[in-house]
Design a protein around this nucleic acid. Structure first.
Lengths: 330, 330
DNA sequence: CAACAGGGGTGAAACGTTACATATAAATTT
DNA sequence: AAATTTATATGTAACGTTTCACCCCTGTTG
């Protein structure tokens, strides 16, 4: 063994007095006699041998690496998703190679290309690029966004969640509902929250309004809208469904500054339920996304050998968690 | 080019009608004639060629990959650190391979070993293992923890931060101070917050107490302690320095339940300042860690070629940001 | 007892690069 | 014009694995 550099299989073979191929078999669970196996293992131990995954990757075209592409990990939802993905991947013997795009479509495309070039075994992406190009050769699973007909998409049951939120509000006695949304101009699965909400309201004959904003608008239009709907200290709406928990808290604060308090004067329900997954008491009532299940599903689908009969959209069930912005805490 | 598999340099060479070595030079900024370079680039484009980083890694022993090992990314401080590291690494042409340890020392060691085995170019770790084993062959930078004499450690100026917090409280007119800490039993750099706090109080002759807890204790002892120090609706302390922002908010809530309000009745200062880096108004007054600079420094040191004259501890300056739990907002 | 499986060991070829020694042509010097 | 330098193209040997055809031995079978 050359001094100074890491030991190779050749060194181990020499040290153990066996052939190179035998050492390889030992580290790949090939059939090797008990005594040989012991000798090789002992020699490897003595030399501090570790298999070189770049040589292995070159040979096998499998790298046991998955690239995860996310807008950021500051947002607790993304952070939880990333963390769960990391755990699931580790359990499966894979490692996670993380890229942050900051919602920049160009960065998204750049990272995807890079990941493909780096021969990862798969990519899990939450992207906003309206026309993302993904090479067919490396498996891709999209989270929450439709990308193209042959890219499976994993998401929460956003439609059902929207319905559920509206239903809960009605059960709580609300009679005039409002849906508030702010987000990307590129519509994703999560926009079905609105559809579900509307669908339930229509079906139940409940009065409802919708305010649909883009990130670039900022929160100010919400304040203006709410202010315009307060007459003599009384808000026109008695139930509000906000598209995320973050927005819910913002709206709660905004309303309280306007003299309207949740849950006394108005019921608020958000979406995401990150607090629940962090073992905290939720700061607001919310529709909880099954984050661990979402992560597990992404990985399952990504690593599935047989991709033939995959549905193009996998919807996972959400649930409701009361959290202090509605009057149902027992 | 064999059908079905990715094109190689050989294919590009053939397509362009040049030698293999020439193609390699083109992709490694070697000296190549203008016309040849164009021909190669055009051929590569036509074939959709991407260099195989596993073959390259095998040959060069450089992989342009850095492993980052963190307890989690739910904690906003860790999330910001990870995100900044990711950005800095990307800017430098490296990719980030992220591992979550959940504070488990065994997982820490396992991930470090794995990273070494995967021939990453370096490791940045925030670990709690009391006796972590790191191989000398792969560069290692520790965040906030002393690991061993030859592992450089990057941290905020925790001592200075402790002093600064005490100084600010005194400047705000506080006369009886309290330091609250909860964390790992394995002492790290961040424990110097206490030392700095004490040092300032001693020097200035300020009365002060310290409550030092471990994660396993939970928050309850804080409540008991505070309750015991409230007499006739009046708290014995008029200034509290908490070891993190998260704790500060918890203490603020706890105190308000006990009828004591910050900042009217008591001044509260925390540590981390994550909100500042997320572009939000800080929820509490705080000592701000220079997260982007911390990340940049970790990477700088890790990738520095000449490791000969490195200090074993690099302390970066903190600053103070008022945030509503002290009476100094102008 | 000859023929034959078959477990288990061997060595060499490939994987896609980079690096280096060699070759060639053009440009410069003597 | 010959000699020397410069610039750049070429081909081949590694890098550390896995894989596969091959061989050897032992035990089984008709």
């Amino acid at each position: 063994m050359k001094r100074g550099s890491a030991p190779t299989m050749k060194d181990v073979a020499q040290e153990a007095g066996v052939a190179l191929g035998t050492v390889s078999k030992v580290f790949n669970n090939g059939s090797v006699g008990e005594d040989y196996r012991r000798r090789v293992l002992a020699a490897a131990e003595r030399l501090g041998y570790q298999v070189n995954s770049y040589a292995r990757g070159l040979k096998t075209n499998r790298t046991y690496t998955v690239a995860v592409v996310l807008p950021n990990i500051i947002n607790p939802f993304f952070a939880l998703l990333a963390q769960n993905l990391c755990q699931v991947l580790t359990k499966r013997g894979y490692r996670m190679f993380l890229s942050i795009t900051d919602f920049d479509p160009e960065a998204e495309q750049r990272y995807i290309n890079m990941a493909q070039q780096n021969q990862v075994d798969g990519i899990i992406g939450l992207t906003y690029h309206p026309n993302l190009q993904v090479a067919a050769k490396v498996p891709f699973v999209s989270f929450d966004r439709y990308v193209s007909p042959d890219v499976p998409c994993v998401a929460s049951d956003n439609f059902g969640g929207g319905q559920l939120a509206a239903k809960k509000l009605v059960e709580l006695g609300c009679e005039r509902l409002l849906f508030l949304r702010i987000g990307s101009p590129v519509a994703g699965e999560s926009d079905k929250r609105r559809d579900g909400f509307e669908s339930f309201c229509r079906g139940a004959g409940v009065e409802h309004d919708i305010l649909y904003l883009y990130d670039s608008d900022g929160y100010e239009p919400f304040r203006a809208f709410l202010q315009a709907h307060i007459h003599q200290g009384h808000l026109d709406y008695d139930g509000i469904f906000c598209c995320t928990d973050v927005l819910t808290l913002e709206i709660q604060k905004m309303l309280s500054e306007l003299g309207i308090n949740a849950p006394q004067d108005v019921q608020l329900i958000g979406f995401d339920g990150t607090a629940v997954h962090m073992g905290q008491a939720p700061a607001c009532s919310t529709i909880v996304q099954p984050i661990p299940l979402l992560a597990e599903t992404c990985v399952d689908i990504l690593l599935k050998e047989d991709k033939s009969d995959l549905p193009s959209l996998i919807c996972l069930p959400v649930s409701y968690a009361p959290g202090g912005t509605t009057q149902d805490l027992v």
